[in-house]
Simulated scan of single mutants.
Amino acid sequence: MFNIMMIKVTRYNSPGLDLGYYLCTSVKPEVRRGHLYEILGRYFDILKETAAKLGHPIDISFEELHIIFQKKIMLGFWFAICLATGPAYSVIQDIDITKMTDVKDFAVQFDILIQKWIVDHPKEADESAQVVLDLVKECRDLSIE
């Protein structure tokens, strides 16, 4: 089975962002691929139960949660990449957040900077490229943005 540790770090935010971040940082690819709907279902059940216990029940369906997840997975992916890789950590400090008006601006700026880093550091880039590319493809396949 898999571990549902995400519940301990869930914060007031978009459930889709929490799920995207969790799935990209804490779940092995084979588990994510093989149990995605089971993980989403478990998260959904615990989210609704916890919100109700706190006196703030939420009125969304599993299908609505799935759509929210699909809309936010790429942002969760970028946050995960920023925290999980040296190259990403190196370039994120050069992103000017004050110029952002939309979440998509972050992805665009990050992409430009990471592409430059790859050109400037070809050996280091080759060492981790396949894992990152696989994750990008998987997240894009899941995303509806």
Rank of each mutant, 00 (worst) to 15 (best):
F77G: 04
I92V: 06
I4Y: 12
V103Y: 08
K48D: 03
D105Q: 03
I7L: 14
D102P: 09
R42C: 00
F2A: 10
I114L: 14
D45N: 15
M6W: 05
S90R: 11
D45T: 15
H66N: 09
A107D: 08
E63R: 12
K104N: 09
I46S: 05
Y12K: 14
Y37W: 05
T85F: 07
L19M: 11
R11L: 10
V9H: 14
R11P: 05
E49F: 02
I67A: 07
T85M: 06
M1R: 11
T50H: 12
G16N: 07
V31N: 04
I97C: 15
V91A: 11
M1Y: 12
R33H: 02
M5W: 15
Y12G: 03
V31W: 03
K99M: 06
F69T: 05
K8S: 15
D94L: 05
L113R: 02
I7P: 02
P57S: 11
M6P: 00
D96R: 06
K71A: 01
L83F: 09
G55W: 12
F106K: 00
M1D: 14
F62T: 09
K48E: 00
I68D: 12
N3S: 15
L83K: 13
A51E: 13
R33L: 04
A52I: 10
M74N: 01
V108K: 02
F110I: 04
L47F: 14
L75M: 14
I68Q: 03
W78Y: 14
F44I: 04
M100C: 13
I46V: 14
I73G: 04
K71L: 07
L36D: 02
I97T: 14
R42E: 13
T101A: 07
D94F: 05
E49C: 05
G41W: 02
I39S: 00
L36N: 03
V103L: 00
Y89C: 08
H56K: 14
F2R: 05
S90A: 11
T25C: 11
C82N: 00
Q70L: 03
L36T: 03
I60N: 01
P15K: 08
L83S: 07
K116Y: 00
V31Y: 03
N3D: 15
I95T: 05
G41P: 04
Y21M: 06
V119T: 04
E64V: 13
C24V: 06
Y12L: 13
Q70K: 11
H66Y: 07
M5G: 15
F2V: 09
T10N: 02
C24Q: 01
L47I: 11
V27W: 07
K116E: 12
V119S: 12
T101L: 07
R42V: 13
P29G: 02
F77A: 00
T101D: 01
L54G: 06
G34Y: 13
Y21E: 10
N3H: 15
Q109C: 13
G76D: 02
K99I: 01
S14F: 06
R32S: 01
I58A: 07
V31S: 09
M1N: 13
S90N: 13
I73A: 08
Q70V: 05
L23S: 09
I95G: 13
I92C: 05
K8T: 15
L83E: 02
Y89E: 09
E64C: 11
F79S: 01
I92H: 04
F69S: 08
D45K: 14
A80N: 01
K71C: 10
T101H: 06
F106Y: 04
Q109E: 14
K8H: 15
I81A: 10
A52R: 10
V103C: 10
F77K: 03
I95V: 15
L47E: 09
